[in-house]
Simulated assay, not measured.
Amino acid sequence: MSMVWQVYLAGEIHTQWRAEITGLSETLGVNAAFCSPITDHQLSDDIGQHITGAEQKAFWNDFKSARLNQARNKVLLEKSDIVVVRFGEQYRQWNSAFDAGYAVAHGKQLISWHDESLNHALKEIDAAAITVVNDVDQVVKALTYICK
Rank of each mutant, 00 (worst) to 15 (best):
G11A: 13
I82G: 00
S2W: 04
I146G: 03
L110I: 05
R67H: 05
T144D: 11
G29I: 13
W60E: 06
W94P: 02
S117R: 14
V104R: 14
D46M: 14
L9F: 12
K148W: 05
D137T: 11
S2Q: 07
Q138T: 03
H106E: 13
H114P: 00
C35I: 07
H41D: 04
H106S: 12
I125R: 00
G53Y: 10
Y145N: 04
F98R: 03
E20L: 13
F98L: 06
A10H: 02
A103T: 05
I125P: 00
T131P: 03
L68C: 06
K64E: 12
T131S: 15
L76K: 14
V4Y: 08
T15E: 13
S112M: 14
A100F: 09
V30P: 00
Q138V: 02
D46Y: 13
L118K: 14
N31A: 03
K57M: 10
Q93I: 06
Q6K: 15
N61H: 11
L28W: 12
T39K: 12
V139Y: 06
D62Y: 04
I47L: 08
W113G: 00
F59N: 09
F87D: 01
A142D: 10
A127L: 13
D62V: 06
I21N: 01
Y8R: 06
R18F: 04
S112V: 04
L110Y: 02
G48M: 05
N31P: 01
N134M: 02
Y145E: 10
Q49Y: 08
I13F: 08
D40C: 06
I111R: 00
H114K: 02
D40H: 04
V4W: 08
I82L: 10
N69E: 10
T131A: 15
R92A: 15
L110C: 12
M1F: 07
Q6P: 04
K141D: 09
D81S: 10
R86H: 06
A58G: 02
K64W: 07
R92I: 14
E26V: 10
D115V: 11
G107T: 10
T27S: 07
A127D: 09
Q56A: 13
S65C: 07
N61Y: 10
I47V: 15
C35V: 07
N95P: 03
T15D: 13
H106V: 09
E124W: 03
L24C: 12
A10T: 03
D62I: 04
C147I: 14
L122G: 01
E26N: 05
S96M: 07
T52S: 07
A128K: 13
F98V: 05
A19T: 08
I125L: 00
I47A: 06
A71W: 11
Q16Y: 11
I51E: 09
H50C: 14
